[in-house]
Structures are given as C-alpha cells and as structure tokens.
C-alpha cells in the first residue's frame, strides 16, 4: 500500500522527513517498550508472590475472626469493634515509571498516640478476638503493599499494550508505507527524467536532418 500523493520533488522531500521522524519515533517507543517490559516482569512476579502470601494469611486471619465470633457471639463482637480506636488513612503520592504514573501508598494512622490496637476493654471479650485482631493488624502492611504493586501492574499492563500497538503500527504500517511511497516517487521522477532526455535527443536528431 502506498500513500496517495503526487509524485513531485516537494512531496518526496516531505515524505523523507516523515520517514526520518517515524524511524526515530519507532526506535524510542521500542526502547520504552523494552524497559517497561523489564520493569513489569519484575513487578508482576512480586505481585504474584505477594498475593499468594497475603491471601493465605488473610484467610487464616478471617478464620480466626470467625472463631472469635463463634465464641463471643455476633452481637458482642460487633459491639466490641464498632468503635475503632483509630482510623487508617492513606497518603498517596505519584511515582513515574517510564511515563506511567503509579501510586505509592502510605498508611497514616490517626488516633491517640499510644492507644492499643484493641478498641475495647478486655472485660467482655475473649482472647480469640485479641489474637485475630493482632493478626489482621500485622497483615495490613502486606495488604497495602499488595494494593500498591497490583495497581502499578494494572496501569503498566495497560501502558505496555498501548505502546506495543504504537510500535507495531509504526513498524508494520507507517514505515513500510512511507518507504514504498518514496520508492514510487523516485521511480516516477527518474522515469520522467529519462522521458525528457529521450525526447530532447529525438528533437535534436530531427532538427539536424
């Protein structure tokens, strides 16, 4: 497929410029893609490991919680934890990995400085609940890390897909098209020149007769 243009010198030099830009763009995008891929593979491996770990721990912790509920009774448990001693907030900053903005998340605990993690008095609750909450509390940093890594992976996967499309479009469509058109114009111009030359020679020989 060649572009639909007039075979003129103007057009030729314009196309040559475009080809140069396309080749340069292709190289840059390809580099970007490679680098993104490298980072992505590191990250996704971490993501996989982290998720396996967190899922396992979390399941355990939730089971403990069920246990605590079974011992204490649903209402008593809900009453005990209905008013948490602190709230967790999230501080999000951006990090730029190869033009992909990924979030960096940090926990911020809001509450009195040295409050215990248990939001209740120990009178009406059982040891099971304490243990379950402690466990959940310990998982939190992992859970957050998982969230951060997983979100980054999602965003990067999207960006990689986009970049790959662009690279392929340039490599298999734009650049071949431009090259073919340039070739076509060069041929056409050469042909015209030869045409002119033979015409001149013909005329000259006619005039000499």
């Amino acid at each position: 497929m060649r572009l639909n243009v007039n075979p003129t010198r103007m057009e030729l030099s314009r196309l040559k410029k475009r080809l140069k830009v396309a080749v340069r763009g292709h190289k840059l995008l390809k580099d970007k893609q490679d680098e993104l891929m490298k980072k992505f593979i590191d990250l996704i491996k971490k993501n996989n490991e982290l998720r396996l770990k967190v899922e396992e721990e979390l399941t355990k912790s939730l089971k403990d919680f069920m246990m605590a509920r079974a011992v204490m009774g649903t209402e008593a448990l809900e009453e005990a934890i209905a008013m948490p001693a602190e709230t967790i907030k999230l501080d999000v900053t951006k990090k730029n990995i190869m033009s992909v903005n990924v979030p960096i998340m940090n926990f911020v605990r809001e509450g009195s400085e040295n409050a215990s993690i248990y939001p209740y008095g120990f009178f009406a609750t059982t040891g099971e609940l304490d243990a379950a909450i402690k466990k959940l509390y310990d998982i939190m940093p992992h859970l957050l890390e998982l969230a951060e890594v997983e979100k980054s992976c999602q965003l990067m996967a999207d960006e990689i897909e986009k970049t790959r499309r662009r690279v392929n479009a340039l490599e298999y469509v734009m650049i071949p098209q431009l090259k073919e058109t340039i070739k076509y114009i060069t041929m056409k111009l050469d042909e015209n020149e030869r045409g002119t030359l033979t015409r001149l020679m013909k005329i000259k020989s006619m005039m000499q007769k």
Partner: peptide, 27 residues
Amino acid sequence: AVILIPGVQGSLGIGLQKIKDNVEKAV
C-alpha cells in the same frame, strides 16, 4: 485502586487470575 481479597471461604483464585490476565495483556 480496587483490590480483591479472599472472602470467608478462602481464596477463589480470582485475584490470581486477574494477575495472569494482566501478564497476558502485557506480554
């Protein structure tokens, strides 16, 4: 960020599947 966590019955493998989907999409 919407992150999946296992429910009471334990992990259903959806979260892991999503990671795999991501890999397939990118790689």
